[in-house]
Amino acid sequence: MNVNEIKNIENIIPLDEGEKIIKQTVNRLTAPGENYGSLMLSVDITVETQDGEMKEINAVAKMVPPNEFIQKIFNTQVTFRNEIGFYKNIVPTLQNFQREHGVQEVIDFSSKYIGSRINLKDDNTQVDSDAVLLLENLKLSNFKNLERTEGFDLDVSKLVIKDLAYLHGVSLALKLQKPDVFENEVKRFLTTLKMDDSEGAEQMKAKIRKLIESVDGCKPFVSRVMKAIDQPPNLQPREPFATISHNDVWVNNTMIQLDRKKPIKNKLVDFQVCNYGSPAKDLLFFLFSSVKNHILEKHYNDLVQFYHRTFTSVLKELKCDTTQFSFGAFEKELDYEARNSQFGHIVFMCFPIFAPKGSVKDIAELLPGEFSDGPPTELHKQKLAFVIKEFIKRNWI
């Protein structure tokens, strides 16, 4: 799909008095397979000031996917509004809450919000093809997606886990101390996504079964694995841990800033399916989908403990009693989510994560059960075998 301009963009760009937009240059931002739930564009805008000087605004535009099947899967009518709400309402609410407690360095794990709309009618009815969410272009600050098929090393993993702990911890502290604010400014933008794709789900299950049967050492576990995948996930939030859950933290939904090849900062992106649920969901899904196998094999316990230390330190900084959030209680959360929600999620996402570049169809052409035209790669098989082995070892499946 080609998009040459965003209509009426001047209505969503914050301009000072006397400023006007002279030019906009729009290009596709992501290649096929790098994003599924939205059409992603880079937008470079030239603005003339009242004094006749020129300034540039470099943005990323998230737009409705040009595919009715994808819109249905992602429940775009709800999730597009929710993502706008995350950047426009939730982030500033959490930052202001931190400032009220004297926190100097408030959360900074997401892109800066520029502007948004759900249609050109200036009403609150239907999200349509003119809907747009404008955010800062992180690539201009040297943030980038790392190679999705390689997975993260220990240093990058810790950067992402730290940001997850702050996302979860600050929002949980707000819930505990200001439940009305949490309900009105946060929770109303958190909707559980129920994938409406029975046809595609059956096709994916058939692909998973076939793949497991082809992987050395996995064939004896086919029935055990398929039973776990057939089990409907339990999506009911449980107290006291329930908080904002990103719900989709994998390699491509993080951007890493490097300094002399050393990772120094992370940004989380793509908050369209965030919901109200357990922080353990995000941690498990990230660890087993996006961290290198040998790193996770050696450092799983260290990373879980690092997450919990950071999470509880955030709660303490915001004057919360952490008694009910002990490490033992968190381990029970991990066990519950591993058994009831995350195994199928991880196995399913291995298909887009390990799809060879060039094999993935454009978002406009994707059909149920499709991610790539080629056979599973060796990296995909290795990750699947690793995940199955680890979940069986921990008696999670």
Rank of each mutant, 00 (worst) to 15 (best):
K389L: 08
G102C: 05
Y87H: 06
A59H: 01
L268D: 08
G37C: 05
N253C: 04
A364E: 12
E183P: 03
V47K: 12
L159Y: 09
N142Q: 15
K207V: 01
K210I: 00
P220G: 09
Q98V: 06
P352N: 08
H308R: 11
L159R: 07
S111E: 08
E183M: 02
F386G: 07
E378R: 08
I244L: 09
V251T: 15
Q236R: 13
N145G: 06
D197C: 05
L154A: 08
Y307K: 02
K207T: 03
E53T: 10
A385V: 01
F189W: 13
K357I: 09
I388H: 13
T192M: 09
K144N: 07
K381C: 12
F69I: 03
T310K: 02
E239R: 04
V304T: 00
E10S: 12
F189N: 15
N82I: 03
N301Y: 04
V91M: 08
F143P: 02
F74R: 07
V251E: 04
K298N: 12
F152S: 14
S157T: 15
M349D: 10
D248Y: 08
I21S: 11
P375A: 15
D362R: 03
C320R: 04
Q104L: 13
L268P: 08
S372E: 07
S359C: 07
E34F: 13
I70H: 09
C218E: 12
I45H: 01
D248V: 03
P220K: 10
G217T: 00
F86T: 05
D16F: 09
F371T: 14
Y307W: 07
E370I: 09
N11A: 01
N252S: 14
K262E: 09
A131W: 07
I388G: 12
E331I: 00
V132M: 03
E199C: 02
F354K: 06
L384D: 10
A165Q: 08
F327W: 11
E53A: 13
K187E: 14
K316G: 01
N8E: 09
L303H: 13
